[in-house]
């Protein structure tokens, strides 16, 4: 796990953030991420992120559930152990619809949530570097990755002129590791916060 150098600019108003994103991108900087306290509509487009295809995954999980239910019940009632229930035929489709529907929803929901957690690396006991603790409160935290060519002082000044209320440079681990919050952590301690 390699640490990287980031320039961090914090904004306190989404109306200022949008033009800043545009300027930072046209200036050729690479935005690592923007951390916001709530979903800001249109920010993903402004950053040029691609659409998520999570819902397609959900559809596939759902179809799997439908198939599981129908084939499972169908096998049990026509092949494995056909029982005469109220004189109805063994292949009893209307009576299977409720369970089929429930399993479709169950598979889709559980599958999607697990996929979501996997994609976003979310789980208990996972720890990540947080660039600003008010990113979950009232600040929109733009994090720009530095390359060899980046002059971090210029970049900080650039962010300030574009409305950032707070800027700094941080060396941080961009990935995740196992750990607990509230405990001093090796990776956190190493982080240099240059005001």
């Amino acid at each position: 796990m390699a640490k990287k150098k980031f320039v961090v600019g914090c904004f306190d108003d989404e109306a200022v953030l949008f033009p800043a994103v545009k300027k930072v991108r046209t200036a050729g900087y690479k935005i690592h991420d923007i951390y916001t306290p709530f979903p800001v509509h249109g920010l993903d487009h402004a950053m040029g992120l691609r659409e998520t295809s999570l819902h397609t995954a959900g559809f596939i999980y759902g179809i799997t559930g439908t198939t599981t239910a129908l084939s499972g019940i169908g096998w049990v009632f026509t092949k494995d152990w056909p029982v005469n229930i109220g004189g109805k035929p063994h292949f009893d489709l209307p009576a299977w619809i409720p369970i089929t529907f429930e399993l479709t929803v169950l598979f889709a929901a559980v599958g999607m949530v697990l996929t979501f957690c996997y994609l976003c690396q979310l789980s208990p006991f996972i720890k990540k570097h947080h660039f600003h603790e008010r990113a979950t409160d009232d600040l929109f935290v733009m994090v720009i990755e530095c390359t060899e060519k980046t002059n971090s002082d210029d970049l900080q000044a650039f962010l300030r002129t574009n409305g950032a209320v707070e800027v700094n440079v941080q060396n941080a681990e961009p990935g995740w590791w196992l750990g607990l919050y509230g405990k001093e952590d090796q990776l956190i301690r190493d982080t240099q916060v240059v005001a």
Binding site: D33, I34, Y35, T36, P37, F38, P39, V40, L43, D44, M47, L49, E51, T52, L54, H55, M112, V113, F116, C117, L119, C120, Q121, L122, S123, P124, F125, I126, K127, K128, H130, A135, T136, V141, W176, L180, Y181, G182
Partner: peptide
């Protein structure tokens, strides 16, 4: 911290969260 699953507020995560 355990309960929040390491949530950071990343825009990509929010986008997926909205879709979810």
């Amino acid at each position: 911290g355990v309960a929040a699953f390491g949530w950071t507020g990343s825009t990509k995560h929010w986008q997926r969260h909205e879709s979810l």
